[in-house]
Simulated assay, not measured.
Amino acid sequence: MKSNREKNQRRALRNRSRLRKVANGRARLSVFRSSKHIYAQIIDDVNGRTLAAASTKEADVKGSGANVAAAKAVGERIAERAKKAKIKDVVFDRGGYIYHGRIKALADAAREGGLNF
């Protein structure tokens, strides 16, 4: 019987393989969610480099990283940093997470900030 971790990893890999097919050279907005924090980074898979990153561990993010408000703040911040790096179009990599709650809040805030996906 497979553990929950193995199931999540398979789901994340399945999601990423679909993204590679539709990416067409666009960067990938990858999200990681832990019980205490949420992290987002824009990755150029062709060159294997991180172009922009944001998380709730940064000093100027107030409050807990485990709520929707913090996820919105990270989404806004990643959109700002993407603009500075001249990135407009990305593909959204939710990993193995369901598009709900903090993941959805981060994605919506990034869209409002100007990212297209």
Score class of each variant (00 low, 15 high):
Asn67Cys: 11
Val46Asp: 15
Asp89Pro: 08
Gly114Pro: 00
Ala23Asn: 03
Val68Ile: 15
Asn67Phe: 03
Asn116Met: 06
Thr56Lys: 04
Ile87Pro: 01
Ala73Thr: 13
Leu19Glu: 01
Phe32Lys: 07
Gly95Ile: 02
Arg102Cys: 01
Asn8Ile: 05
Asp108Trp: 14
Gly95Leu: 10
Phe117Arg: 01
Ser30Glu: 02
Phe32Arg: 03
Val90Ala: 01
Gly101Phe: 01
Asn47Glu: 14
Phe117Tyr: 14
Ala52Asp: 04
Lys104Trp: 05
Asn67Arg: 03
Asn67Gln: 06
Ala105Thr: 04
Leu51Asn: 03
Asp93Leu: 07
Ala23Gly: 00
Ala71Arg: 00
Ala54Gly: 11
Asn4Ile: 02
Gly96Ser: 12
Lys21Pro: 07
Ala109Gln: 08
Ala27Asn: 13
Val61Tyr: 12
Arg49Trp: 07
Arg20Cys: 04
His37Ala: 03
Arg28Leu: 13
Asp108His: 11
Gln41Val: 02
Asn24Cys: 12
Gly48Lys: 04
Val91Trp: 03
Tyr99Arg: 02
Ala40Cys: 10
Arg26Asp: 07
Gly101Leu: 05
Ala69Glu: 15
Ala52Cys: 06
Ala12Leu: 06
Asn116Ile: 12
Lys57His: 12
Arg81Trp: 09
Arg16Ala: 05
Lys84Val: 14
Asp44Cys: 09
Val61Ser: 10
Val91Gly: 01
Met1Gly: 10
Lys84Arg: 15
Ala79Arg: 03
Val74Cys: 06
Phe32Thr: 07
Gly96Cys: 09
Tyr39Gln: 07
Arg77Phe: 00
Tyr97Lys: 12
Arg20Leu: 12
Ser55Glu: 04
Arg49Tyr: 14
Asp44Ala: 04
Lys83Asp: 06
Ala69Tyr: 09
Gly95Trp: 10
Arg18His: 14
Ile98Gln: 13
Val91Thr: 02
Ala27Ser: 15
Lys57Ser: 13
Arg94Lys: 04
Asp93Met: 05
Arg102Lys: 14
Ser35Thr: 12
Ala71Ser: 02
Arg10Thr: 06
Gly75Ser: 06
Gly96Arg: 01
Lys72Gly: 13
Lys57Ile: 13
Ser35Gln: 10
Tyr39Leu: 01
Arg14Trp: 12
Leu115Glu: 06
Arg5Phe: 15
Val46Pro: 05
Ala12Arg: 08
Arg77Trp: 00
Ala71Glu: 00
Thr50Ile: 08
Ala23Thr: 00
Gly113Ala: 08
Lys83Gly: 15
Leu115Met: 09
Asp60Trp: 13
Glu58Pro: 08
